[in-house]
Computed example of a mutant assay.
Amino acid sequence: MSKTSAAQPLSPYSSATAKAKIETHTLSVLVDNEPGVLARVVGMFSGRGYNIESLTVAEVAHETHLSRITIVTSGTAETIEQIRHQLERLVPVHSVKDLTLTVRAIERELAMIKVRGKGENRVEAMRLADAFRAKVIDATTESFIFELTGAPRKIDDFVELMRPIGLVEVSRTGVAAISRGPEPI
């Protein structure tokens, strides 16, 4: 008789999936705008051990009471496909599109970044903000709050450059995404 250890439940992020390539995908989910829908969508993720890296929700069609949930998640290609199929089966969901597979998709995010700085650090923060096209939305003699809109990677880069200068706090909206062209997603 062979020795076996107790079976451990595998999450999409366990070491068993370490050999498979982990990908980040942006999903656009069109849902009914009614109480409890977001809880059902988020509950599907948490109940199955999937992670949500970014989540944004807004009504997009007032007349038909539809909202768009934009979810950034990661996992193997199989995990992402499983997430998509499970979302499609939820009752309030009208459609699920993987915008990562759409080469013409655009992703943007808004961030407010608070930076402390005096003297040379203040000058350097302003120089970098200008290079990134960040807008000053609040300023005191000891700090700035910058507003930056762009691709998530651009915001990540700006935040990392502000760390040694005097980064205090960051607030981000999460990814909003849409496909280019005349066709709806």
Rank of each mutant, 00 (worst) to 15 (best):
K3F: 15
S5Q: 14
A6F: 14
L10C: 13
S11Y: 07
Y13S: 01
S14I: 11
S15Y: 12
A16C: 09
K19L: 14
A20H: 14
K21I: 15
T24M: 14
L27K: 14
S28W: 06
V31S: 00
V31I: 07
L38H: 02
A39D: 10
R40C: 00
M44Q: 05
R48Y: 03
R48G: 02
Y50D: 02
N51A: 09
S54T: 12
L55H: 04
T56Q: 04
V60K: 01
A61Y: 08
T64Y: 02
R68S: 05
I69N: 00
I69K: 03
I71P: 00
I71S: 00
T73M: 00
S74A: 05
T76D: 01
E78C: 01
T79P: 00
Q86P: 06
P92T: 06
V103I: 12
R104E: 11
L110E: 01
M112A: 09
I113W: 08
V115C: 14
V115M: 10
E120C: 07
E124R: 15
A125P: 04
A125F: 08
M126P: 01
L128D: 10
R133S: 13
R133L: 14
K135W: 08
K135H: 11
V136N: 02
D138S: 14
D138I: 04
D138Y: 05
T140Y: 10
T141C: 05
E142F: 09
L148W: 07
G150K: 12
P152S: 02
R153W: 07
D156Q: 13
D157V: 08
D157K: 12
F158H: 07
E160I: 10
M162R: 03
G166F: 05
A176C: 11
I178K: 12
S179H: 08
R180F: 00
G181C: 12
G181Q: 06
G181K: 03
E183W: 15
I185P: 05
I185M: 06
